[in-house]
């Protein structure tokens, strides 16, 4: 058997090369990870925030599930399929609003543009935690990062990466998605909590 001899000098060089490779790899990952607009794209689908307290996990999950249902649209499956998946994730009020307002208003454009989108959703934090003043129902607002696979035709600008504020409420003991806050509501809330 031949004996392989490695000098101390060569051992040091090999260790240096390995450390450099690891540093370059970590730097590349960190750059991709923290680039603006890329965050949602790198998350699992949907992704819960790892530092969310256990008590908030169900509400956060409801927000993620609602966003997933809202933005996952396949025109070939039809309007009713979209509405069904929305209502399965929503409160009764949310379902009624989808049924009477949002879906009828948006579907014709989605169908005409043959929209078939998937979405990646990531929770970015809880913005509001309160009890509905018109009832005794807990509700929360969650900030979500949305990454659409393709823009939708009713957008003012064709963004695929944006944030959304999701209103969730506890109904019959379970947290459910109700709706997204409108731009007016989100702007007003942003001023209230000191966001830009």
């Amino acid at each position: 058997m031949n004996e392989i001899t490695v000098s101390k000098k060569h051992l040091f060089l090999w260790l240096l090369v390995i450390i450099l490779l690891a540093a370059v790899g970590f730097g590349f990952y960190a750059l991709r990870r923290f680039l603006p607009g890329q965050e949602a794209a790198q998350q699992a689908v949907p992704t819960a925030s790892s530092n969310t307290p256990d008590a908030d996990q169900p509400a956060q999950a409801a927000a993620l599930e609602g966003a997933q249902a809202f933005y996952s649209v396949d025109y070939q499956k039809g309007k009713q399929a979209w509405l069904d998946q929305l209502c399965a994730a929503s409160t009764s009020t949310g379902c009624a609003m989808d049924q009477n307002v949002f879906v009828p208003a948006m579907w014709p454009q989605l169908e005409a543009a043959k929209i078939n989108t998937t979405v990646k959703v990531a929770a970015q934090g809880k913005e509001v935690d309160q009890v509905n003043p018109l009832g005794n129902v807990p509700q929360q607002v969650w900030k979500l990062g949305i990454q659409l696979s393709a823009p939708w035709p009713m957008q003012k600008q064709p963004h695929t990466s944006f944030t959304a504020l999701a209103l969730v409420a506890r109904e019959n003991g379970a947290w459910k998605f109700e709706r997204f806050l409108t731009e007016d509501e989100a702007n007003a809330l942003g001023k209230k909590v000191g966001q830009p």
């Binding site: 208003a105 949305i146 939708w152 957008q155 944006f162 959304a164 504020l165 806050l181 731009e183 989100a186």
Partner: peptide
Amino acid sequence: DVTLPGGMVVHQ
């Protein structure tokens, strides 16, 4: 009109 996240305009 109401605007949803992503600048999606919902006409009523």
